[in-house]
Write a protein that binds this DNA or RNA. Structure first.
Lengths: 382, 382
DNA sequence: GGGATTACTTTTGCGGCGGAAGAATCTCGG
DNA sequence: CCGAGATTCTTCCGCCGCAAAAGTAATCCC
């Protein structure tokens, strides 16, 4: 249980394989990673000595009684280190403590009353102290922010925080003494889902998030595709219907104007004069209120078009629909699938769609996964 | 000038770097490939001895007189081996002879009067004999076919040839004694453009072809993304306008129905009763003939939508528009760009578009490039 | 011609890998 | 209960490929 060693590339691939794909025997690892059995003995030894891996008995089902010497499963010691993940929104900071496997073991939220970088860093440090008090094995911190992030450290541009070139990783590190990884929030969520969630083991995978904005993440060949222009505040640079509605947040007929939670609330408010919550609007649409039904129906069709386009051009094996606005699928599912059908070839493969009701703690968990990737395993997170 | 040795991974990367990025000195190669200078001496020696590389004087412009010992450029011996590339269409076989650099040095076409695999292989072997007679250094054959190809060898499914599981590589190899690589025609063209053409050195790159069908190829991280479902005869599984025209080739409002050469000719014929060539239709549209202008205008808008979608979701640095139908851009460029504008965010980066008037010999050249990749360099072409 | 500068080559040593042989641990069948 | 067979893991050895460093070569500048 000494300190984490810097891992060689081969050790790293072993550690990642075990971490992501559960307990595996040395022989199985050798097969998956295309290495000899001898190499696996050599590679796993320091990982076990350092406390990252452990030889654990098979858990129930997999303990098949076969001939020959039984295989010895290796597993990560999920609790040996904790990680903190933070998601910074306009007016809140959401924090979680996770295990090495990214299971959330604690939560803590705080309102954000200002956007000064120093103040935000102070708040994060405060929350870190509080969380680390109860979980003393914290090994690192991951922070997700909406906007453009450079080198896992500097917030190049974040429109809603009104930041430019803020060295957030350094600020938090100075206050906590812990290693810090900063990443775009969507990118972090995509990495988390690719490693531990809906995209585990998939080659081509898309994450689409609907919430305050629109997020889009593409995984090809098992790796997230980094986009320089990604998420600079425009959501997707994407006009679905040039004659569509115009909202303060987005261009006329854009995905942002049609689909995001604030835009839908704005449209209903503009039409009815009443301010309703997103849930109320969804319930109203389901109950047949005309204005709500119209706005939600239009949103559903827009989402269908979006899904069809993604399926056509990126051909993912699965699309994960996440964020605070996925309730749309429950109410307007028919409109979504109608639009998908009318924008795809009838013989095209059906879209593998998975929806995930996610809250801000899932975003924070994504940031924690980034920290795991970068800090423990030294993976080039993109 | 002995036979090609099987290359080690490091030798391969050196050979590819020199082949694709022109003459390079050893020091420059060491920098690009992140290897020591000593390794480069070691790696280049067998490549020079085998005749693949040669030390050549700098060609003019690059011969900067700097201080110190002048660098010694290494270049591939482009003429040391020739490659044959074939593109098999419905009614023709197009053949080219290329150098290692994929420059076309000869052409030969033959009509295809049947689709029996044995007959097609015979014809390719005949053309090979004729071409190899004049170019005795032929090292391999690449064949591009529309349809789904497995393992660089077997045509899994080709609708227009009405083939299923035809081991074309084996058939041609038996008749010629030369190594043969078979690949989907679009994939081959994409590889060729990625290595030697518009996509050279780019990280994110898209090829869109308009001709008898629609082709779409995506390059991310400098590598072509392989799609299992790609090009099984549907073109893009993609409906642009659910109320659009219906043609025999494609679904209503699909990219195939709106954009391909046969579909455009069909639409004009159905509307006017006269059978006109694609060029005549373009000229007519330019001259203001109503029906031609309507069909071509609609095609232009469809192309604009298509380009906008691709730019939105794949965010390539460049889109190459190729095929026999690119003349559309000259006549309907305004409609294309109007549609692009109305389907993209106004602040989104402009699309880097390159059009390439290409004929069937370019497709054959793409197949030859595949042969170079697989046979000489052992590159995993995907 | 001498020094500086840059490019390439040779030598040396080390780390990581595969392969082969051996040890460990199980089942099965007598 | 014991041995044969099966399977997993470990140990050991040798090779390959790399980096590092020192040496050699070719040029420019003064």
């Amino acid at each position: 249980m000494s300190d984490w060693l810097p891992l060689s590339p081969a050790e790293r691939s072993v550690a990642i394989e075990v971490l992501v794909h559960g307990p595996l025997s040395r022989t199985e690892l050798a097969r998956r990673l295309d290495l000899s059995q001898g190499s696996l003995t050599r590679l796993t030894k320091p990982l076990i000595e350092s406390g990252l891996l452990v030889e654990a008995p098979w858990a129930g089902a997999q303990a098949e009684a076969r001939q020959g010497r039984p295989s010895q499963p290796l597993d990560v010691v999920a609790e040996s280190r904790s990680f903190l993940g933070f998601k910074i929104t306009d007016e809140m900071v959401y924090g979680v403590v996770t295990s090495l496997r990214s299971d959330i073991v604690a939560r803590l939220d705080r309102p954000l009353t200002g956007h000064d970088p120093g103040y935000v860093a102070d708040l994060v440090a405060e929350m870190t102290a509080e969380l680390a008090d109860r979980h003393p094995t914290v090994a690192g911190i991951g922070i997700g922010v909406g906007g453009f992030v450079r080198a896992h450290a500097v917030v190049g541009e974040s429109p809603y925080l009104r930041w430019r070139d803020v060295p957030l990783a350094q600020l938090v590190r100075e206050r906590t003494g812990l290693p810090v990884v900063v990443e775009n929030d969507v990118a972090a969520l995509v990495e988390a889902e690719t490693w531990f969630g809906a995209g585990r083991g998939l080659d081509r995978f898309v994450v689409l998030t609907i919430g305050a904005g629109i997020g889009y993440g593409l995984v090809l060949g098992g790796r997230r595709v980094p986009y320089a222009e990604e998420d600079r505040g425009f959501g997707l640079h994407w006009i679905i219907d040039p004659q569509g509605p115009l909202t303060p947040q987005g261009e006329r007929g854009s995905a942002v104007s049609l689909l995001t939670v604030p835009s839908i609330r704005y449209q209903v408010r503009a039409a009815t004069g009443r301010d309703a919550s997103y849930e109320e609007i969804l319930a109203g649409a389901a109950a047949g209120e005309p204005m709500a039904a119209r706005v939600i129906g239009e949103a559903g069709r827009a989402l269908g078009v979006l899904l069809a386009q993604i399926a056509n051009f990126a051909m993912p094996q699965k699309i994960l629909l996440a964020g605070e606005g996925v309730g749309l699928m429950d109410v307007a599912g028919d409109e979504v699938w109608d639009a998908v059908r009318s924008h795809r070839h009838p013989l095209a493969a059906p879209i593998g769609l998975e929806t995930k009701v996610s809250d801000f703690h899932d975003w924070a968990r994504g940031a924690a996964v980034l920290a795991i990737q970068v800090l423990v395993l030294g993976a080039a997170g993109g």
